[in-house]
Simulated scan of single mutants.
Amino acid sequence: MQRSTGLFFGSFNPVHVGHMIIANYMATQTALDEVWMVVSPQNPFKKRQSLARDHDRLHLVRLAIGDTPNLRASAVEFDLPKPSYTIDTLAVLREQFPERTFSLIMGGDNLPTLPKWKNSDILLRDFDIHVYNRPGYELGELQDHPRVFVHDAPLMHLSATYIRQCLREGHSVRYLVPEAVAKELAVSGLYR
């Protein structure tokens, strides 16, 4: 039987409890068997200086996941051409893991922009898309698509930008990031 794997893409700069709540919700309260948190390499539209090195962010995601059995960190995009497109990443994963079916996980703010993505017609034809509602965002006409599943996952008003600001200003990020991540940030000095 094929395992149903949800792909939760993000820069996770750094990973925080809001990310982990969504990942855990999708892995335990939907039809998905597991969730892979795919750490995205440098996005050409984001400022480089605000982004920690790829492997540092991956390390923090691994620490956040710990021994949670149905969550996994993935660096699949690190070796792909930049910028990496979701459809290309999915093609690589399907080839590497033919025993799995892959789905996308995205926020409701991204769903209306999906038609602008590379090969969005193939994405919608071949992959389920699990959407977590985000307050203040209309889902648009794709919310009724047969491959789109909308979930009311618990959300936090928390951003990685805010956490980086706290770290720069020497404020505590306890309870904002998983405990293992907080310890690593304190020791490493990342984002200071």
Rank of each mutant, 00 (worst) to 15 (best):
R3C: 07
G6W: 04
F8Q: 05
F9I: 02
G10L: 00
G18N: 06
H19D: 10
I22N: 00
M26T: 09
A27W: 01
A27P: 04
A31G: 08
L32N: 05
D33I: 08
D33S: 13
V38D: 04
S40A: 10
Q42H: 15
N43P: 09
R48T: 15
Q49S: 14
L51G: 06
D56S: 12
D56C: 11
L58H: 07
L63K: 02
A64I: 03
T68K: 00
N70M: 05
A73L: 06
S74Q: 08
V76F: 11
D79N: 15
K82F: 11
S84M: 03
Y85S: 09
I87C: 02
I87T: 01
I87M: 03
V92N: 08
V92T: 13
L93D: 01
L93Q: 01
P98A: 04
P98H: 01
R100I: 06
R100Y: 10
T101S: 13
I105D: 04
M106Y: 06
G107V: 09
T113M: 14
L114I: 09
K116A: 13
K118V: 13
R125H: 15
F127L: 12
Y132G: 09
P135M: 14
L139A: 10
Q143D: 05
Q143M: 07
R147C: 12
F149C: 12
D152H: 15
A160I: 04
A160V: 05
T161W: 01
Y162A: 14
Y162C: 06
Q165E: 14
C166V: 07
L167I: 13
R168G: 08
R174D: 12
V181T: 05
V181S: 04
V181Y: 04
A186E: 13
G189S: 08
